[in-house]
């Protein structure tokens, strides 16, 4: 089953073409990594899928439903059941760790007992049970990454988008977080689209790897040992 399908999608920003006739389908349970240099259109592609942008031309199907077509967004971001970890994490500083994870569950109208159970499960999954009351500013970089992951995963999304969330980490922490992402995906079984400019990171996370160059997709085989 296809979770996401982009058909002949093109997008320009400030009259500059960023994506050009992209065709892409992502299957359920896949860990798709989009690899490419800065400015090649990776983030724009993720923002299109999330619903923050609409394609100028082409169509986007999410979970079998037409989500956007030819400049019009038909399903708003909050109804696409997507989780996302942003490049700068975008943790809300006025909420605690618990508040950050719980926000999306409250917005979806989940009853309190279920919210508490899910928050507890997420905290356990990312190993932050003891830090639930802390504010994001009181956490280390790695802990913040895990809060961002827990926040994205708590509503049980069909699809999780990761926009270079490891780019600012030191090599050791980067390596640990890669393993963490793979572990979480294998545990929960969600579909993952991860963008990065780090080839080593791409090879370690991907079950399928594609490259992007100047707004177009270039298929790239995974190394034999991946």
């Amino acid at each position: 089953m296809k979770v996401v399908e982009l058909k002949a999608v093109s997008k320009s920003l400030d009259q500059v073409p960023v994506l050009q006739a992209i065709d892409l389908a992502v299957s359920a349970g896949e860990r798709l990594v989009i690899f490419g240099p800065s400015g090649c259109g990776k983030t724009t592609l993720l923002r299109l899928v999330a619903g923050f942008l609409a394609p100028d031309v082409g169509s986007l199907v999410i979970g079998g439903e037409l989500a956007a077509r030819d400049g019009r967004s038909l399903i708003p971001p909050e109804r696409r059941n997507i989780g996302m970890v942003f490049q700068n994490l975008a943790l809300w500083p006025h909420f605690s760790v618990r508040g950050n994870i719980e926000f999306g569950l409250k917005a979806r109208g989940l009853p309190r007992p279920e919210r508490e159970q899910r928050v507890a499960a997420m905290l356990k999954l990312v190993g932050l049970e003891n830090l639930a009351r802390r504010k994001p500013g009181e956490l280390s970089g790695g802990q913040q990454q895990r809060v961002a992951l827990a926040r994205a995963l708590a509503p049980h999304p069909d699809l999780v988008l990761l926009d270079e969330p490891l780019s600012s980490l030191d090599p050791a922490l980067n390596d640990r977080m890669r393993k963490e992402i793979v572990r979480l995906q294998e545990t929960l079984g969600f579909t993952l689209i991860h963008v990065t400019h780090n080839r080593e990171e791409a090879d370690e996370i991907a079950t399928r790897l594609i490259g992007m160059e100047q707004g177009s997709i270039v298929e790239r085989p995974l190394p034999a040992n991946a």
Partner: peptide, 10 residues
Amino acid sequence: QMEEAGRLAT
């Protein structure tokens, strides 16, 4: 991006 993170939920 903080607002976009919220827009995914509400």
